[in-house]
């Protein structure tokens, strides 16, 4: 499909200087209403980048989440809590990995099942200043 020239140019203008790797969305049972997107972001620009949001047509709500361990480290019987944060900052050159055991891009209230490996899910990342990154995430089982 041919993109109208104007919107293509706009997308270029607003694209953040960031390198994406290892992107996927975790396949979950068809009854699940939550999943998450995982990836590594690397700030390849000269200024700090601040990730402020995630959204996807696959979920009604996208949230930036961190995982927080309560209590002393090393105790397997400590509680773990997920906590929503408003943003993630990346200094120039800095990498940030979202992984199942830590920070993740939560997709909540899924609009349809994400149980089929091989599906592709559009993911949009918003950065402070209006930069937008549109990605297509493959659905795959956690490794």
């Amino acid at each position: 499909m041919k993109m109208p020239a104007a919107s293509a140019r706009m997308a270029t203008q607003l694209a953040p200087s960031v390198q994406v790797s290892g992107l996927y969305v975790a396949a979950v049972p068809s009854v699940a209403t939550e999943s998450a997107a995982y990836l590594t972001l690397k700030n390849t620009g000269k200024t700090a980048l601040i990730l402020t949001g995630v959204s996807s047509p696959a979920a009604r709500v996208g949230m930036l989440m961190t995982m927080k361990r309560m209590g002393a480290p090393g105790n397997a019987l400590d509680m773990t809590a997920m906590k929503m944060v408003t943003d993630f900052a990346l200094r120039p050159g800095q990498s940030l990995t979202f992984a199942p055991s830590g920070a993740h891009l939560m997709l909540s209230r899924l609009t349809g099942p994400l149980s089929v490996v091989g599906q592709t899910v559009p993911i949009t990342l918003n950065f402070r200043g209006g930069a937008v990154l549109r990605l297509a995430a493959p659905v795959r089982r956690l490794q």
Partner: peptide, 9 residues
């Protein structure tokens, strides 16, 4: 089952 990360993992 509403657990997005730790339980599936």
């Amino acid at each position: 089952t509403h657990c997005p990360t730790i339980c599936p993992l």
